[in-house]
Amino acid sequence: MPRHVLMLDLKSDPALIERYRQWHAPGKVPPAVVRSIRQAGILDMEIHLCGDRLAMIVEVSDDYDPEAKAAADAADPDVQAWETLMNTFQRPLPWARDGEKWVPAEKIFSLGDQTTGEDAEI
Rank of each mutant, 00 (worst) to 15 (best):
A32H: 10
A70E: 13
D119I: 08
E59W: 06
Q80K: 10
L49F: 09
K101I: 14
Y64G: 04
G99P: 04
K101M: 11
S61C: 08
V33C: 01
D98P: 05
M45G: 06
L43E: 15
K107Y: 07
A55N: 02
R53F: 02
I57L: 13
I122Q: 13
D76K: 01
A68W: 07
K28T: 12
R19A: 15
A75N: 06
P31D: 14
W102E: 00
P66V: 10
E18P: 00
T116N: 10
E83D: 12
D52K: 05
L16K: 14
E59M: 06
L85G: 01
D113E: 15
F109R: 02
P26T: 05
D113S: 12
T88Y: 05
A71N: 07
Q114S: 13
R53S: 10
V34F: 04
I47C: 05
A81P: 04
I37R: 11
S110N: 09
P66C: 11
A32I: 04
E118C: 03
A32F: 05
N87A: 15
Q22G: 04
V29I: 15
I57H: 03
Q80C: 07
I47A: 06
R35M: 09
P104N: 06
G117L: 00
P92W: 02
D98K: 02
M56T: 08
L54V: 07
R91L: 03
R35A: 14
S61T: 12
H48F: 14
A96P: 06
A120L: 15
D78P: 02
G27M: 10
A70C: 06
A105Q: 07
R21F: 01
E100T: 01
W82M: 12
V34T: 14
P92A: 13
V60E: 13
H48C: 12
P66T: 07
S61A: 13
R19W: 01
A70S: 09
H48Y: 15
Q114T: 13
R91Q: 15
D76Y: 00
A68R: 10
T116E: 14
V60A: 12
D98W: 04
K101N: 11
L43A: 11
Q22F: 08
V58L: 12
P92C: 05
